[in-house]
Design a protein around this nucleic acid. Structure first.
Length: 998
RNA sequence: GCCGGGGUGGCGAAACUGGCAGACGCAUCAGCUUUAGGAGCUGACGCCCGCAAGGGCAUGCAGGUUCAAUUCCUGUCCCCGGCACCA
């Protein structure tokens, strides 16, 4: 090939021509269409589908696509039925923002972007099965996204709630916890604020344990990925402790029984006993006409015969609450009112009539007077009550301005003889979570989060309430960044007037509100002690006494610990801990937890860092949440037959910024008839987050045109789970966690056949610009894959991308690097044409070529299976360097092209057709290698003296130590070094080395 | 601070379960070829000493185990990613 005449006589390597030629042939022959229920073993290769943006696809997309493509083409040749689908994750802010700016409807912009991205993918020679293409913005697709949402709703895992959520001021929408990175919006980088909003949530926390457990059954996932998910879920095992409030202002409880009740019924006698044993005076009047009560008559009776003053707590059960409120209306001032299952509407869940109760409540309440005569109300409702609905509680909560406590009573409507939650509320028990129960005897203060309900509930007893309220307001106004700033000193305010009682030693502990306690974790309250750095720092700042109760178990000097020079946070031996002295920390945790359980003062429990998924967005370009709000029926899911709820086509979809979705302004769309009662109703106007569509897309690929379901069970059974999932590390605690959650849920609903969606996860490293910085338009270091395809070809782009480094490593693009790969392909092109022109038979080929070919096949086979594509590229080059000057047969060239095909499919196909083969390489079986052909006849053995290389000798493969020894002693270099010294030892490694120790 | 991952020529990187450190490629230099070269071919290319033969030093740094360490162990520094007052 050094002869110029030969070079000029052959065809030039025209990449553009041959690439489009083969891309057309592949498409026309439908090589890449995966067949359902094929007899071949299936393989599901998945790569994250892109968001089609106006800028097109970039290098970051290319990396997993090319790797997955090589992998896919290889397994097709190995005889697998491979599904390698692609689609579009096309809902989201960029299209919407672009639309607002340009006045182009997002659906039009999206369409355009998709066709461009598809063109790019095809120009890269990616072998996707386009017959299975999905698009999350297609109503036929999002119909099922909405349908799945309704399954969550029906299972009680989708709920509406009002609370402080993360709010991005630039994108004007709420965000999930996972979308906040370092206190900033994952998408636009704005500092996230907090906003009180009504939102839809998905109860991912209900799946915390399953998500954690599932990780254990994913051996083919990288450990770092699993660990990152595990840390995000953040399981803490510990205990919840009830700290009872010391309320010096409260002297007396008055228990007002229910209709049909008597002082010796239900939980009353037990509660009376418990309260009295704690030193309170208890009055439990036996009311007149208990079966057909009259509220005014009963109030009159209590008012006349019992003591009601500002040291009294009124505790009503059911009808008793009406009486309690009437007493306030009559002007009795009390300390606090506890309403247990209070009736508001006079309608009952069991549809029975209770005329006396209904008549009493229908008179209405004078809330103004009521609120004036008690500073604090506690509302306690049972979630499985069959008489009074929680809606009654909500009505009271709204009217009185106090939070509603919903819980599951021992018996519906609190009718058990022992109802511990009623006692807890009466005593003001505050639950505190800890992972270190062993330090409980050393607790010297309590810290609660600014959002903690205790503050409002005990307003009347907090002497410095104004100061506290000021602190709370300031804390709530801060962003998370301000609140958790690294150097920030801890701040807090003591709640004067109340104390908490440590159950293990009856000590009265001061209660502080401080923003280092987080409402979202545990119970929003903690106890402070000397064996925690944060607690100690806080205590020192505010001069709160500390008590050391642990000493190091290893017997090391503990005087530093005692003088607070050091914070000892490890496990140790208890002292200063009363009856628990001498126990080791681990033992103490068990013993104290059991002690708490026995005393009804706490229990072992588990909490997670994971928060429920804020699932609504106040933006236009997303799936509408298929819910209707009816003033009579409340929340009504859109009936299945009415799905999909289509996005209305409108001109204006600017975000409002008020927390309302732009859809809220479209009256024609919003106002609907209630599917339940036919009355006036309104659609839910929030849309779903970007992550919704991608939470189940791999399932749709298995059955993309199904009209009856999101994917048939039989097709899922054939294709799922995904065998290899290529994608980015950045999705570990977003898409990857969310989609596992959806899958686990659907699996529990028996709608999905694979418990875990992805058997193997293959993350890739990012590609940096030539300057080693992240590629970005503002830095001007973006390398455009299209321009490389244009001037060097897709095969060059593919191979160089793989050559950059290991798939999982971060690599930077070298400005000239791809030229080396192009040179290689040019040489292969010339060499291939030359081999063709000589038409040599295998017999005239040297054994060396054969051996090299077998070695190459082995190397490429193993590299692909182990995702080591970078060394494959080297191996092709080495092979070519080795055989280029030797006679090579056409048959050997074909084998070379066959193994090259997954990497550089266009060149390989074209050369293969030049040498006269009519069938595509895609239909060739993957070549086998003969292990015997890989072993050479002779091997080079390294000769070392004291571990230093002194020379090399060639010996027949498998030579013994004796042979080697006799050979090396003849070497000059060895003789010289040895001179007269004696050999102490000889280390011999067969076919590798011989080392003389002297 | 905690949890991961990683430090090898001028650059991207190889090196199987401890066995020739730097394969392969980029850049650079020299030569050949060419009217010309930002093309092609051939060769050199870790650092230091040396004309050379040869020798010494080298896988972030300091130790250790071993006949032999990029690989195993201990300590330490730096870079990247994640979490971050999580009780």
């Amino acid at each position: 090939m050094n002869q110029p005449t030969e070079i000029f006589s052959m065809k030039k390597y025209q990449h553009s021509k041959i690439e489009s030629k083969w891309q057309k042939i592949w498409q026309a022959k439908k090589f890449f269409a995966a067949k359902d229920f094929s007899k071949k073993p299936k393989k599901y290769v998945l790569v994250e589908f892109p968001y089609p943006s106006g800028e097109g696809l970039h290098m970051g997309h290319l990396r997993p696509y090319v790797a997955a493509d090589v992998y896919t083409r290889y397994f097709r040749m190995r005889g697998n039925e491979v599904i390698f689908p692609m689609g579009w994750d096309a809902f989201g802010l960029p299209a919407e923002n672009y639309a607002i700016k340009q006045g182009v409807h997002p659906s039009i912009a999206t369409k355009k972007n998709i066709s461009n991205a598809k063109r790019q993918m095809q120009s890269w020679g990616l072998s996707f099965d386009w017959s299975r293409e999905v698009n999350t913005t297609d109503p036929n697709y999002y119909k099922w996204t909405q349908w799945i949402f309704l399954q969550f709703y029906k299972a009680g895992l989708a709920y509406e709630a009002t609370g402080l959520i993360n709010w991005c001021p630039k994108d004007k929408t709420g965000l999930a916890n996972e979308e906040v990175i370092d206190g900033k919006c994952e998408r636009c980088g704005s500092t996230v604020e907090k906003k009180e909003l009504r939102q839809w949530y998905l109860k991912i926390t209900a799946y915390a344990e399953k998500l954690l457990e599932g990780l254990k059954h994913l051996p083919k996932w990288p450990e770092p990925v699993k660990l990152q998910q595990e840390n995000w879920i953040g399981k803490s095992v510990g205990a919840e402790i009830d700290f009872i409030l010391d309320q010096p202002k409260v002297k007396r409880f008055v228990i007002l029984h229910a209709r049909g009740g008597y002082p010796d019924g239900y939980f009353y006698p037990w509660l009376k006993r418990e309260l009295e044993s704690r030193g309170y005076e208890v009055q439990a009047p036996a009311m007149p006409d208990p079966e057909a009560p009259n509220d005014d008559e009963q109030a009159e009776f209590v008012s006349k015969n019992f003591v009601l003053d500002e040291s009294t707590v009124l505790l009503g059960h059911s009808f008793g609450n009406v009486v309690a409120l009437r007493l306030l209306e009559r002007g009795h001032k009390v300390n606090r009112v506890i309403l247990v299952g209070a009736p508001f509407y006079g309608k009952f869940l069991d549809n029975k009539t209770r005329p006396t109760v209904t008549a009493a409540v229908q008179k209405g309440f004078d809330f103004k007077t009521i609120k004036k005569n008690s500073n604090s109300f506690t509302l306690l409702y049972d979630t499985h009550d069959y008489v009074i609905s929680v809606a009654d509680g909500e009505a009271f909560s709204k009217a009185l301005g106090f939070p509603l406590i919903k819980l599951r009573a021992q018996k519906p409507h609190f009718m058990e003889k022992v109802e511990p939650d009623v006692l807890s509320v009466a005593l003001g028990a505050t639950k505190v979570f800890t992972t270190r129960v062993d330090t409980l005897p050393g607790a010297t203060f309590i810290v609660i989060a600014p959002e903690h309900a205790l503050i409002e509930s005990y307003k009347s007893q907090i002497i410095n309430y104004k100061e506290v309220a000021k602190y709370v307001k300031e804390a709530k106004d801060k962003t998370d960044i301000q609140r958790t700033a690294k150097e920030k000193e801890k701040t807090g305010v003591e709640l004067k007037g109340i104390k908490a009682i440590n159950p293990v030693n009856d000590q009265r502990l001061p209660i502080w509100v401080a923003d280092y306690a987080l409402m979202g974790f545990g119970t929003g309250a903690l106890f402070g002690d000397a064996h925690d750095e944060r607690d100690q720092a806080f205590a020192k700042k505010y001069n709160i006494p500390l008590k050391v109760t642990l000493k190091p178990a290893d017997g090391s000097d503990d005087s530093k610990v005692r003088s607070f020079e050091e914070v000892f946070t490890g496990d140790g031996i208890l002292y200063n801990s009363g009856e628990f002295d001498g126990l080791g920390s681990e033992e103490a945790r068990k013993v104290i937890t059991k002690w708490l359980v026995d005393k009804n003062a706490g229990k072992a429990t588990v909490t997670y860092k994971l928060r429920d998924w804020v699932f609504s967005r106040q933006r236009y370009w997303g799936e509408p949440i298929p819910i209707i709000h009816c003033s009579d029926c409340g929340i009504v899911p859109v009936p299945e037959k009415d799905l999909p709820v289509k996005l209305p086509k409108v001109k204006n979809y600017q975000p409002t910024g008020t927390g309302e979705s732009p859809l809220a302004g479209i009256d024609k769309w919003v106002n609907v008839k209630c599917p339940n009662c036919g009355g006036e109703a309104k659609r839910e106007t929030n849309t779903m987050p970007q992550w919704a569509g991608s939470s189940w897309y791999w399932l749709r690929y298995t059955d993309p045109n199904n009209k009856k379901g999101f994917a048939s069970i039989s097709k899922q059974k054939y294709w799922t789970p995904v065998d290899v999932y290529f994608g980015g590390m950045e999705h570990t605690t977003l898409h990857l966690l969310y989609s596992r959650f959806w899958n686990l849920f659907l699996y529990d609903q028996k709608l999905v056949t694979a418990r875990e969606p992805y058997t193997m996860r293959k993350p890739h490293g990012i590609i940096l610009g030539t300057d080693g910085e992240k590629m970005s338009k503002s830095r001007g270091n973006v390398v455009n894959p299209d321009s490389i395809v244009k001037s060097y070809g897709a095969d060059t782009l593919r191979m160089y991308e793989l050559f950059l480094g290991p798939h999982e490593a971060t690599v930077s693009w070298n400005e000239y690097g791809h030229i080396g790969v192009r040179r290689f392909l040019d040489r292969v092109w010339g060499w291939g044409n030359e081999v063709e022109s000589k038409k040599l038979k295998v017999e005239s080929e040297s054994e060396n070529v054969q051996r090299a070919l077998h070695r190459l096949t082995k190397k490429i086979t193993e590299d692909i299976e182990n995702f080591r594509f970078n060394t494959s590229v080297s191996a092709f080059m080495e092979f070519h360097n080795e055989v280029k000057d030797e006679p090579v047969s056409v048959l050997s060239l074909k084998i070379f092209l066959t193994v090259l095909y997954p990497f550089a499919p266009h060149v390989a196909e074209e050369l293969n057709s030049i040498i006269g083969n009519k069938t595509s390489l895609q239909l060739e079986p993957w070549p086998k290698f003969n292990p015997e052909m890989i072993v050479e006849d002779t091997v080079e053995i390294v000769v070392q003296i004291n571990g230093k290389v002194k020379g090399k000798i060639n010996l027949p493969t498998g030579s013994s130590q004796l042979v080697a020894q006799s050979q090396i002693l003849k070497l000059d270099s060895v003789k010289q070094t040895l001179s007269d010294q004696s050999i102490k030892r000889i280390v011999f490694v067969k076919d590798k080395l011989i080392n003389l120790v002297i």
